[in-house]
């Protein structure tokens, strides 16, 4: 159970970084919406889980945040990618692609191929 949550959190962090990379500075709700749009179910319930992830990323220095004004003229916290975050994103993207490629190949292999 815990392992699954960890994986989820790790993936979620990567999604946040990618989202900020693509869309630029965004508030929490925006990020949640974006991830929801792309990943579908993952964040459909429990948008709240996003906030601890944002905090962790900020503590690690991958993202930074500041107060700004949202589209409905309310005070909102905007997150943006830092240089460190961009580097981390690149590294992790590469890692993910590699992993995905390897796993992909594993799934592609059929029993008779190994004979």
């Amino acid at each position: 159970m815990k392992d699954k949550a960890d994986v989820l959190q790790g993936t979620l962090a990567l999604m946040v970084l990618k989202t900020l990379d693509v869309l630029g500075p965004l508030h929490g709700y925006g990020i949640a919406r974006r991830i929801e749009q792309i990943s579908g179910d993952l964040l459909a319930v429990n948008q709240g889980t996003l906030y601890p992830v944002l905090l962790k990323l900020e503590q690690e220095g991958s993202i930074a945040s500041e107060w700004g004004t949202s589209e409905n003229n309310r005070k909102a916290r905007f997150y943006r990618l830092t240089r460190g975050g961009r580097k981390q994103l690149q590294a992790e993207t590469q890692g993910w692609q590699q992993t995905a490629a390897i796993i992909g190949r594993f799934f592609a292999v059929k029993a008779e191929d190994l004979k």
């Binding site: 459909a44 319930v45 709240g48 889980t49 601890p52 905090l55 962790k56």
Partner: peptide, 18 residues
């Protein structure tokens, strides 16, 4: 509120991270 999930649980989680 439903979509957000447990507000207090999130806060608790957030504090643990913080």
């Amino acid at each position: 509120l439903l979509k957000f999930g447990g507000v207090e649980a999130t806060k608790e989680d957030y504090r643990d991270q913080r």
